[in-house]
């Protein structure tokens, strides 16, 4: 069972829910309070009843402070459980605001430890200084459990919708990310070359759009694969939705024989 974690202001949960449901994988919406013990007793949930947690996009708590900061802070209440969760090889994925939450809570980049107490990555305000919603080209640089079904170096088309998506980190972390093949997606142009604005829509370091932890079971990306689950949702006509294999990869991993 996958839990789609929500709170006030997450607003992409239906789209992710529908993707798993369409692939007939068991999925449930869970409010953050149901994990942290703040909900009524009969509504409380145990994270270890789930194989995976997905954190959807949106504007959790309004994102008035810094994108993902409040969701991240509230999630820290269960950081011990989260650490155990990841250690056991269960998965945690974050899309857009969910990616911001994972960096805020310290589950990404997952280099020094499974979870670090201070954020090591920032998803800062776009260079264009505004919210942008449009489709972009992504190159699949390295495989992780979330992207097993894509070919290495494949170019896909996925929409972005964010104001804070500029990937920034320290030189050391960047080098380690490269070394460990943790960079999963980069922004490119149609030909697959690394290019500046508008192809790199936010000014991310080295065009980074999505990364995983060392083991590949925690993953975050700014673009929205759930919004191109079906071919008819693409900007340009396609036979199969480019986002579908993202969810198929997750399910394939979760159904693996242990």
């Amino acid at each position: 069972m996958i839990a789609i974690l929500r709170m006030e202001g997450t607003n992409n949960e239906d789209d992710i829910y529908n993707a798993f449901a369409a692939l007939k994988y068991p999925v449930e919406m869970v409010h953050l309070k149901q994990f942290t013990g703040e909900a009524k007793k009969e509504l409380q949930r145990n994270i270890f009843d789930y194989e995976g947690i997905m954190i959807p996009g949106g504007f959790s708590a309004g994102d008035y402070v810094r994108a993902g900061a409040i969701f991240g802070a509230r999630l820290k209440k269960i950081s011990k459980e989260l650490k155990e969760f990841v250690k056991e090889g269960r998965i945690i994925g974050g899309i857009c605001n969910g990616f911001q939450v994972l960096t805020e809570v310290g589950l990404l980049p997952g280099i020094d430890n499974i979870i670090v107490s201070k954020p090591q990555i920032s998803l800062a305000v776009n260079d264009s200084a505004k919210f942008e919603c449009r489709h972009v080209f992504l190159k699949h640089e390295n495989k992780c459990f979330f992207t097993e079904k894509y070919e290495k170096n494949e170019i896909i088309q996925v929409p972005i919708a964010h104001a804070e998506g500029k990937f920034i980190t320290s030189k050391r972390i960047l080098e380690e990310l490269k070394e460990n093949n943790q960079i999963i997606f980069k922004y490119v142009n149609r030909a697959g070359n690394y290019a500046g604005y508008p192809f790199n829509p936010n000014g991310s370091m080295e065009n980074i759009a999505g990364i995983s932890n060392l083991e590949g079971n925690v993953f975050g990306m700014m673009p929205h694969p759930e919004r191109v689950f079906y071919p008819y949702l693409h900007q340009e006509k396609k036979k199969v939705g480019d986002g579908k294999r993202f969810f198929e990869s997750i399910i394939k991993y979760l159904r693996r024989e242990v």
Binding site: D15, F131, C133, Q157, F229, L233, Q235, E236
Partner: peptide, 19 residues
């Protein structure tokens, strides 16, 4: 500047053509 894709229901977009 408007999110016109959220909900994954927008089949033809307010801006159309090549990316």
């Amino acid at each position: 500047q408007y999110d016109h894709e959220v909900g994954a229901r927008t089949v033809t977009k307010p801006l159309q053509g090549k990316i």
